[in-house]
């Protein structure tokens, strides 16, 4: 097969023959199915590109917008009030695992703090006072009731009905501590 543009060189009289490989005939594969496959691949690629770029873009946009939006919303509502009104806090506390909480609470420090605050050593010091306090208190209480008994008898003998005026003198205990 000779190309039409190549004229034979008249001077030499030689002929150049161009040999071209024959294009594979259409009978081996269907060009339509090939086209469809190509199109499908292209669509897949485009889809994945869209998938990655667009969704990533949307995610990034949401990441930026949502916190702002939520903040704006939360700023406008009283969350504490809503929780107080609508949430059963007792039920939540009832379900909480107190043991774990208590495990994390510094109990010994708190106990020491309480002892310091109420001045427990002072109370102990004053309650014992170097004497067996129970025995002393028992004796005092005994004599106290004997006092009242005798006073009652004396009052009835002399027909005193108003009772005795035994309040402390002014100033002794009037400074708000009894």
């Amino acid at each position: 097969m000779t190309t039409p543009g190549e004229q034979p060189d008249e001077g030499t009289g030689q002929e150049v023959v161009l040999v071209v490989n024959q294009v594979p005939s259409a009978g081996a594969t269907n060009p339509i199915s090939e086209l469809v496959g190509l199109a499908a691949g292209l669509v897949g690629a485009v889809a994945s590109v869209i998938d990655q770029t667009v969704i990533a873009g949307v995610n990034a946009a949401l990441d930026r917008v949502v916190p702002i939006a939520v903040n704006v919303v939360v700023d406008r509502i009283d969350l504490t009030k809503i929780v107080l009104e609508r949430v059963d806090i007792d039920a939540i506390v009832a379900r909480a695992n107190m043991d774990k909480i208590i495990d994390r609470v510094p109990m010994v420090e708190i106990a020491n703090y309480i002892i310091d605050e109420i001045d427990l050593p002072k109370i102990i010091r004053e309650s014992t006072g170097g004497i067996a306090v129970d025995a002393v208190n028992a004796a005092r209480l005994q004599s106290l009731s004997l006092d009242e008994f005798i006073n009652k008898i004396a009052d009835s003998i002399i027909f005193r009905r108003k009772g005795r005026k035994v309040e402390s003198p002014a100033g002794a205990y009037s400074e708000g501590d009894v």
């Binding site: 109420i118 002072k122 208190n137 209480l141 004599s143 106290l144 004997l146 005798i150 708000g176 501590d177």
Partner: peptide
């Protein structure tokens, strides 16, 4: 504010607390 009761009152028996500051009787 000075509103706290004397803490040593804790150690006084309940029956005697009201008697604190009152004049004592003959037996005691």
């Amino acid at each position: 504010a000075g509103e706290v009761r004397d803490l040593a009152q804790v150690t006084i028996p309940e029956k005697a607390k009201s008697k604190q500051g009152q004049r004592s009787g003959i037996v005691t």
